[in-house]
Amino acid sequence: MIEILVPALSVGGIALVLGALLAFASVVFKVDVDEREEKIAEILPGANCGGCGYAGCSAFASAIVNEGAEITKCNLMTDEKLSAIASIMGVEAGKKIKKVARVACNGTCSVAKEKYEYYGLDDCATAAQLGGGAKACAYGCLGLGSCAVKCPFGAISIVDGIATVDENKCVGCSACANICPKGLITVAEVKPTAFVNCASKDKGAVVNNVCEAGCIGCKICEKKCEFDAIHVTDNLAKVDSDKCTGCGLCAEACPKKIIEIL
């Protein structure tokens, strides 16, 4: 009898004591978490993409509750989710603006020259350290796909040597824009506007030497524009998206056909 009682009592006793201790500790060491925070964290997509500017979805949820962060900062939010969170917080749901990433380079394999053959890691930052990368143009997309790897949503692919964004998949989280060593990727609102598909600040003659599809800073677009929305600075055309109406006059006039109407 004693052989059974000893282990049963001692192990059972340990378990009881520890159980009681844990139960007690769970009350004493309770950390108060705002209920709303948990509810909002459940509604948030949970992708932890960081597009909102916070460390992750739960950090964003706590920022919404504690710091009154804008709900619309999350690019993945659908309208239903938005209103669900708004009702938890008791505020009006704002209107969400869809943003996508765009790559400002047109220099596909056939039109852009290379200055050397690159054998190494498939990583743009590494390649960029070797004389700015293999591309003859110092501003162009290296096409090694660091942005495509970084994209949590599989929205970027390398097509004909340059990164291409699938606008349906892109949520505008800026992960790609932050990693591009050439700073070619911008994240902007989706609306009809002209987009200059080049980032080269070289002079026209230099551009012509290295790429057939580069902005040469000829200022024809500037002259054609009726809304004062496109200007050439540093040999590169820049669109003022507030003024641009997307009429397409500049795109037609561009001798290099590098302006796109989105």
């Binding site: 282990p7 001692s10 192990v11 340990i14 378990a15 520890l18 159980g19 201790l21 844990l22 500790a25 769970s26 004493v28 060491f29 309770k30 950390v31």
Partner: peptide, 24 residues
């Protein structure tokens, strides 16, 4: 002969306890 089972019990509970304590 109870060492293994008792130790498992103690370690599991201890980790739980430490987690709660450290969190607070």
């Amino acid at each position: 002969y109870l060492q293994t089972i008792a130790f498992i019990l103690v370690i599991a509970a201890l980790v739980q306890f430490i987690e709660m304590f450290v969190r607070k």
